[in-house]
Simulated assay, not measured.
Amino acid sequence: MGRGRIGRYTERVRGELHDAFREDFTPRELSGSFAIGAFITMLPTFGIGLVAFVAIGYVFGWVSKLALFASVLVFNPAVKWGVYAASFALGTILLGPVEGVSAAGVSFSAGPDIVVRLLVGNLILAVLATILSYVVVYRFARRYQSTAVAETIDETLEEIAETTLDSDSESG
């Protein structure tokens, strides 16, 4: 990926999260929504994850659909292949190597030993990504909302000052 492409991708993720932050959700709801999305997206759901997103968004009113779906931008299909490779490597470290199989020859059709290593590693990475996602988005949301509150207070004070000054100049 070129620098320009990464920059556009980063701006897209930032834009989606910015839109989610402007919704009427608390930082915990936003970060929880993104973290749930990160967990589901990290797992090998083969498209069923999107169905889970719709169901979660429909059933739970506290879930920010924008934050939930923003996680797909971070853990997109291109990134997931790297996640799967790291998952298999982690599973192999934890459970030991599979005889006669190299990292280049990994596929679901290669056998249950490989699938188990892939899923164990993937589950661990998904949990780590979920925790990290929650913390990062929570901090961003808190910072964003405190900045938004400060800007709203400033705007309100300016309006009060203008109104007060206008009424004083009219009466004086």
Rank of each mutant, 00 (worst) to 15 (best):
I124T: 07
R143I: 02
I153D: 02
L43M: 11
A89I: 14
R8F: 13
W62Y: 14
V149H: 05
V106E: 08
E29S: 05
E159Q: 05
G32W: 10
L73P: 13
W62E: 11
S31Q: 03
Y138L: 03
T26Y: 07
L90Y: 05
T92Q: 15
P77G: 01
E162V: 02
V63H: 12
A129E: 00
L66M: 03
K65Y: 15
T147M: 05
L17I: 01
P97I: 04
A67V: 05
R8L: 14
A86E: 03
I160R: 15
S167L: 06
S171E: 14
K80F: 07
N76E: 04
T130M: 13
V74T: 03
F39W: 10
Y138M: 07
R117D: 10
G121W: 06
W81Y: 09
G32F: 09
D166M: 13
Y9W: 15
S102A: 13
L17G: 07
R14N: 02
V79S: 11
Y138H: 08
F34L: 13
S71P: 12
L118H: 06
T92G: 11
P44A: 07
Q145N: 00
E23W: 02
G91M: 06
L43V: 07
L68V: 00
G105A: 05
F69D: 10
F69S: 13
H18N: 09
V13M: 13
Y144C: 08
L128T: 06
A161E: 02
E16D: 14
G82P: 12
I93G: 13
V98C: 02
Y84I: 00
A55W: 08
V115S: 11
I114W: 12
S71G: 15
A161D: 00
V127S: 04
L118I: 04
V51F: 12
Y84L: 04
S71Q: 10
A129S: 05
A78H: 15
G7L: 07
A141W: 03
P44F: 01
F60C: 01
L119D: 03
T92Y: 14
T130I: 14
G4H: 04
G61M: 02
P112Q: 12
T163P: 10
W81F: 05
T152E: 13
V83Q: 01
A78P: 10
I153N: 04
E155Y: 11
F75G: 03
G121Y: 08
A70I: 00
V63L: 09
E162H: 02
V51D: 02
Q145C: 00
T130G: 15
G82T: 03
Y9T: 04
V59R: 07
L165E: 15
E155G: 09
V74H: 01
A55C: 10
G7N: 04
K65E: 15
L118T: 05
F25E: 06
I56T: 10
L119K: 00
A129K: 00
S71C: 13
F46H: 12
Y144M: 01
Y134D: 13
